[in-house]
């Protein structure tokens, strides 16, 4: 048997600890279901932030429409699971959501990825809004009124959210350090030079977009399980901005950065609420006023972070367990 490297062992230990500890803490009543659901939220926001980082941070394609791909995943997942609400359908439905999203990414990416920089961002923003309008007009998924998933909370398990997040992060990490990833980075750094050394830049960009969309779709499926109710407007371009905020706040191009970004984003917004009404212990029912205070503070903190660390919290650095082989040696 191949000897496991020190790094691999650390990774496995960290994953196991994160998998078991929250569940144990919750079962023994140390943390409430609300804290556990914050952790679940961090899981699927991590996946979607990382998927955007793959598209923008690694492949350099400025997308302001990531929420649409999350939305496709969420709606496809919701539709399938509503037809067959059982455990064995769970993973096929999640994958189907991802694949539907990837397919849309391909169809959309083919024409739009010819655009560059700000223009690509604007086009993807517009696509996101068109997606919202289309969903609002599809009666089968509730249109503008919203779409209720008939699955209750039985799927809201910590191991499911964490497990899917770990697998997704692991696959995306491997893609980044594979030949594909290197191609994407080359295109990001200089697409003309990349083309000159024989890289098919169009193909590379589209692959990045398709893979990013796939994982965004999977994250969407998780978010559908999480909330149990989907509304078209929660996938509009404002939400895409939020993903962008997570990626940039964490550090563009850094895998760990996206995870940190998602963590800070959720932990701050939800933690603020937790702080305010600690005594109430009622999840998700903070009054509207308090809701608004927290966003005011969040906006200020975001501005301050950007002013003092324009490259994000991680600033291009990487966690040891997310590094590629050649980086490990350094």
């Amino acid at each position: 048997m191949k000897r496991l490297s020190k790094n691999t062992i650390t990774t496995i230990v960290v994953i196991l600890v994160l998998l078991i500890v929250p569940q144990v803490l919750y079962s023994t009543g140390v943390i409430t279901i609300y804290v556990l659901s914050i952790l679940m939220e961090i899981c699927f926001f991590s996946i979607s932030a990382l998927s955007l980082n793959l598209v923008f941070g690694i492949a350099g394609q400025f997308s302001l429409g990531q929420a649409a791909f999350v939305g496709v995943g969420a709606y496809v997942f919701g539709y399938i699971i509503n037809q067959v609400p059982s455990w064995w359908m769970l993973f096929p439905a999640l994958i189907a959501g991802g694949l539907a999203s990837a397919a849309l990414g391909y169809v959309v990416g083919l024409p739009t990825l010819r655009l560059k920089g700000d223009y690509l961002g604007i086009a993807t923003l517009a696509l996101d809004q068109i997606f919202v309008v289309v969903i609002q007009n599809i009666k089968a998924v509730g249109g503008a009124r919203g779409f209720l998933l008939g699955i209750g909370s039985s799927f809201r398990q910590w191991w499911l959210f964490f497990g899917v997040a770990v697998i997704s992060v692991w696959i995306m990490r491997n893609i980044v350090y594979s030949n594909w990833g290197r191609t994407m980075i080359a295109v990001r750094e200089d697409d003309i030079a990349a083309e000159a050394v024989g890289i098919d830049t169009t193909k590379s960009k589209i692959w990045a977009f398709v893979i990013g969309s796939f994982f965004a779709g999977v994250a969407g499926g998780l978010s559908a399980i999480y909330s149990g109710f989907l509304q078209p407007n929660s996938f509009n371009f404002i939400q895409s901005f939020n993903y962008m905020v997570m990626v940039i706040m964490g550090g563009l191009g850094s895998l760990g950065g996206s995870l940190v970004g998602a963590f800070v984003y959720v932990a701050f917004l939800e933690g603020f609420r937790l702080l305010k009404d600690w005594a109430m212990y009622v999840p998700l029912l903070g009054s509207i006023a308090q809701d608004q205070y927290r966003i005011v503070f969040f906006a200020l903190i975001l501005i301050v972070i950007m002013l003092y660390a324009p490259k994000g919290i991680m600033g291009g650095k990487e966690f040891a367990i997310l590094k590629g082989k050649e980086l490990e040696k350094k």
Partner: peptide
């Protein structure tokens, strides 16, 4: 980087609205 500026703009926007 331009993108940091954009994120700051989103921050300013969130701040003003809220």
């Amino acid at each position: 980087p331009k993108i940091s500026l954009l994120i700051t703009a989103i921050g300013v926007s969130l701040f003003l609205e809220n």
